[in-house]
Design a binder for these strands. Structure first.
Lengths: 250, 250
DNA sequence: CTAGTGCACTGGTCGGACCAGTAGGCTACG
DNA sequence: CGTAGCCTACTGGTCCGACCAGTGCACTAG
């Protein structure tokens, strides 16, 4: 085990060092969202690199969602507040190239959602509980208003739950995975089961969940929510994959 | 609501169209991992853009983890198999700029892990169960071998569980979040509680989990695993945040 | 005081140039 | 005949200089 441990000298490219420095500035808070980077021509002076190098660095930073630049803007690139856009992008890629099945995605949602509900059952305020109630009311009113309105109300409910749960990571992942699931569902809308019955049942389930949360029975609420999601999505997933979903129902 | 709904014409930049095309080719499978892109000079002909534009596109693709290019390589950029590297990167950024607390991360691990265990309890094969057993054995042997060896064995255990659970999304997220947690822990190693006692207790917990899985009691195994993770990490998280963690213990 | 105009500057794209490095074919040696 | 070593064609990384369409701001004319 003796001898000095040399690290492999990776040839670090100029643009990477630029990226690192800006990234560090943003993540450490030295640059806050809304602030501006110097112009490309200014940056090339500060970093002592060419504009091409600066631009490649900016492209990377932009791809990571840290920065945005508009043509003609005299103020330079804008530092963005964090958005899960990059996370969303890479998860979508993951879903495509790894061929994540709808079942896996729904399963993941069941996990996240029931966890959020478990947490929310403990931590929710009265106001948050009321918000969930209003969302379910909106769902009821939207049954005949069409898919989109119903979907929006459903999203509002789950957002309220997740926010009450107080875990930002769960919040963001829920958001990302949900949008991917919805996209997949939209493609299969043809094979949809009886939508209206599905909606009515879903509303009923949501009400049960709220009741359980009001009673403070987190585990029950979580179990109910898993059941609700299973009922709602089972019709879309392949027959043979439903088993894995049911494994979460107990 | 009448009238044609025009979409805003976003000025789509040349390099973005290049990115889109290559991305589409990769995600649709037209380009498989290991295959090579044409050289930059060839690409600029095919896309009818300048090399700068091609290079900016390649930088973006590289930032998304789809391709890699080495200087001097006569074969052109290589199409990479999917890695969660990009996912990891954006989640790490998230953790920094959104100031995710260790508690939130650990909480998320508790959620993912117990879900994986719940699934594994149903779906595991005998071989996989044996693998988990071997990992715990390795943990036992590593208590005196040092942190790293113990950690590696622990990771091996959870990897086996997660694989047995059969959900790739859980697998990848576990991997990503775990590495972030470990990095944060490493920074706080000074405030560490009695490490050896922690390890021994952890081994005991892991054995209980395996026993429950062998008995086919998924919910019990999941509950035990949450308890195990709580015990292991509670010492590192702020006093005031432990409550949120305990909410998952019931 | 406002409406309009011009200008200085921005980012996006292009083309050309040079360098260090690689892979694979070629040559000369064993 | 086989192999070690060189050579060359080409690669990606970086730099430079140029042009364009667009933006925001200051300035001007009403």
């Amino acid at each position: 085990m003796g001898g000095p441990r040399f690290e492999p000298v990776r040839a670090v490219r100029a643009y990477e060092r630029v990226v690192e420095q800006v990234e560090e500035a943003v993540e450490s808070g030295a640059l806050s969202p809304g602030e501006r980077l110097p112009s490309e021509r200014e940056l090339m002076v500060q970093f002592s690199v060419s504009r091409s190098t600066v631009r490649e660095a900016l492209r990377v930073l932009q791809a990571r969602g840290l920065v945005r630049s508009r043509p003609g803007d005299p103020h330079g690139a804008e530092v963005l507040p964090f958005t899960p856009a990059a996370l969303h992008k890479s998860m979508t890629t993951l879903a495509r190239v790894e061929e994540l099945s709808l079942a896996e995605l729904v399963q993941f949602r069941m996990v996240l959602d029931s966890a959020a509900i478990l947490l929310a059952a403990r931590l929710r305020t009265e106001e948050q509980l009321a918000e969930m109630g209003r969302a379910v009311e909106a769902m009821r009113g939207a049954v005949e208003a069409g898919e989109d309105a119903f979907g929006a109300a459903d999203v509002a409910f789950h957002d309220a739950v997740v926010r009450a749960g107080g875990n930002k990571l769960i919040e963001i992942c829920t958001d990302v995975v949900r949008s991917i699931v919805l996209k997949l569902i939209a493609e299969r809308i043809a094979e949809a089961p009886d939508r209206e019955a599905l909606m009515r049942r879903s509303i009923h389930h949501h009400e049960e969940v709220i009741a359980a949360m009001r009673a403070g029975d987190g585990p029950l609420a979580a179990r109910l929510s898993r059941k609700a999601m299973y009922d709602y999505y089972a019709g879309y997933v392949e027959e043979c994959e439903r088993g894995a979903l049911r494994a979460l129902l107990e």
